[in-house]
Amino acid sequence: MKYIVFILFTVMTNAAAQLMLKYGMMNMGPLSFAGVNPIVKILQIVFSPWIFFGLCVFVISMASHLYVLSKVDLSFAYPFLSLAYVAVAVFAYFVFREDLNAWRIAGIGFICIGTILIAQSGREDHAAGTELAANSMTTNGMSR
């Protein structure tokens, strides 16, 4: 649980990147490749300020996630990324006026409950691992 700050940083930067990409694409207008070189169009998209900044924030999010993966189990860290769905849905409701109906709210609730359960399992696993290590050290020390 001591890496939860880094996990939540990963989640929030991931969500922030999604919001920046959405805003950038809204500013681009309708996307059409008709009569335009696709490579030029892709470069226009990538180097649009909000999209470029969103991609940079994704890189920061990925670097943070790699750090987290070097410290905790993947089966513990990865499910926390689902909280990015929660953050994106809530911020999209307020920033972009996107629909947040009862079904989405229920889904968000299930995501939050699942993440809490996973967080609790990490706490138990850590306690069990600490106890196992302590017992192992005691046993090894006594057998000498």
Rank of each mutant, 00 (worst) to 15 (best):
I116D: 01
V46N: 11
A106F: 15
N14T: 14
V36I: 13
M12Y: 08
E98L: 00
A106I: 12
N140H: 14
F80E: 02
N140C: 12
G129Q: 13
F80L: 03
L66G: 07
G114S: 07
V59W: 04
D73M: 11
N27P: 04
H126W: 06
A128V: 09
H126P: 03
A119D: 00
T130K: 08
L81Y: 07
I42L: 09
P38N: 05
Q44K: 13
T13M: 06
S32Q: 10
A119S: 09
A87T: 12
F94K: 07
S48C: 08
V46H: 11
A102T: 15
K41E: 13
A89N: 08
N37H: 14
T139K: 14
G109R: 02
M26L: 15
T115Y: 00
K22T: 10
F94S: 05
L81G: 10
A128L: 13
I113M: 04
F76W: 06
A119H: 02
L100C: 13
L69C: 06
L31I: 14
S70T: 12
V90K: 01
F58G: 10
A106W: 09
N14P: 01
I118C: 00
A92Y: 10
V36M: 07
M25P: 10
T13G: 05
L132H: 12
V86F: 04
V68G: 04
F52D: 02
S64N: 06
I45T: 09
V68E: 00
V36C: 03
N27M: 12
R97E: 12
N37L: 08
M20I: 03
V72F: 05
G129P: 11
A133H: 05
D125C: 08
Y67P: 02
I39R: 14
A16V: 15
A87V: 15
V72A: 01
T10G: 09
A133V: 03
C112Y: 04
G122L: 00
I105E: 13
L8V: 06
F58Q: 15
F94E: 07
S61Y: 05
A15W: 01
G109F: 08
V86N: 04
F94G: 03
L132S: 14
F80S: 01
M28Q: 13
Q120Y: 02
P49Q: 01
I42Q: 07
I45P: 05
T130V: 15
V46W: 11
Q18A: 14
A16K: 02
Q44F: 06
N135D: 14
A102K: 11
G29A: 00
V86K: 03
D73T: 09
M12A: 11
A16L: 15
G35N: 06
D125W: 05
L132N: 11
G29E: 05
L117K: 00
